[in-house]
């Protein structure tokens, strides 16, 4: 091979032959025998595991098939989705409020936000959920209103029917602390000149936030928020601490307590969690694309030649 290359350059020694430069280089590719070998080995291992798993009795694939679309499992999946959606709704709204309070020039607002984040991020979510479950033994009714007996309204939380909502609030409050930090990072990522330009055009604070700052912050906020939603979907399996037993994981454990066959039920629960996660990942991809406008050529590899095109 080396000889041939030498021959060619030798015969074109004058370098006046343009084809020497114009022709694309055709070189023999470097081989990676170890890479191919280890990849093949990996594939073989996976195949061996799958064929073994397909025949292994303990997985009990018949039971898997029997229960995977069981109405109780489907209902529990819906409950898990509701827990995720409602608690994320609380977390995102409260997170935005906490992030804004944190930026406020008022020291009281700043401190309240800081302490909230400190407490809810500093204790385990499982412990928090157990605590919220016991809340009704401390406060049988919750009063919302002005302090020292001013106007307001009370909610009785001692019924077992309120446990679902206690779980939602418990998960939401914990997550809000994380969302606050994500939102804050997003707001801080927007260049100061943007707020200034909007101000100079006569936009008020809220208009500036809504039309200029938040749309740009979203590009930074959405990817970690997507991760938080996926993470929340899985964290809902801890609501058994409250205790709520209608979610996907707890319900599938309950069924296996009747059938004495836990492994297929765990596989079923995992299947549904994985399916929802996959759907969420697709949704996240499209959301990120939507909010990357103006940055699209960087994030999504569109034709970079358009940059710096003349007038």
């Amino acid at each position: 091979m080396t000889n041939k290359v030498n021959d060619q350059s030798g015969s074109n020694n004058s370098r006046s032959d343009r084809s020497f430069y114009d022709e694309p280089i055709k070189a023999v590719r470097l081989r990676h025998p170890w890479r191919i070998f280890s990849a093949a080995l990996l594939v073989l291992w996976v195949i061996a595991f799958l064929t073994d798993a397909a025949g292994r009795e303990a997985y009990d694939w018949n039971a898997y098939g029997e229960y995977v679309f069981d109405p109780r499992i489907l209902k529990a999946t819906i409950i898990t989705l509701q827990l995720t959606a409602y608690s994320m709704l609380i977390a995102i709204s409260l997170g935005v409020i906490l992030a804004v309070l944190r930026q406020s020039p008022n020291p009281v607002f700043k401190a309240v936000s800081w302490v909230f984040i400190w407490v809810f991020r500093g204790t385990p979510v499982y412990v928090q959920l157990v605590f919220w479950g016991l809340l009704s033994t401390i406060y049988p009714t919750l009063f919302f209103g002005a302090p020292f007996g001013g106007p307001g309204f009370s909610i009785d939380i001692s019924h077992s029917s309120s446990l679902f909502w206690i779980a939602v609030v418990g998960l939401g409050l914990n997550e809000a602390a994380y969302m606050a930090e994500i939102v804050r990072a997003g707001l801080l990522s927007v260049d100061e000149g943007q707020e200034e330009a909007a101000k100079a055009l006569g936009m008020k604070w809220w208009a500036t936030m809504r039309h200029i700052i938040i749309p740009q912050a979203m590009r930074i906020i959405i990817p970690p928020t997507g991760n938080e939603v996926i993470s929340m979907l899985k964290t809902t399996s801890l609501v058994t601490a409250v205790p709520v037993s209608s979610d996907l994981y707890t319900r599938s454990r309950d069924i296996s307590a009747e059938t004495f066959n836990p492994i297929p039920m765990l596989l079923i629960a995992s299947t549904w969690y994985l399916l929802i996660t996959t759907i969420l990942m697709v949704a996240q991809y499209f959301l990120e694309k939507r909010f990357a406008r103006g940055h699209a050529q960087i994030a999504y590899g569109a034709d970079p030649k358009i940059i710096g095109e003349g007038a």
């Binding site: 943007q194 006569g202 008020k204 604070w205 200029i212 740009q216 940055h295």
Partner: peptide, 25 residues
């Protein structure tokens, strides 16, 4: 008030050294 200050600015145009265009628009 912030809204009156904003109104006052609305008929004064400003052009910045670093342009400060809105990149998402």
């Amino acid at each position: 008030k912030a809204s009156d200050a904003a109104h006052q600015r609305s008929d004064i145009g400003m052009v910045f050294q670093k342009f400060n265009l809105f990149p998402h628009l």
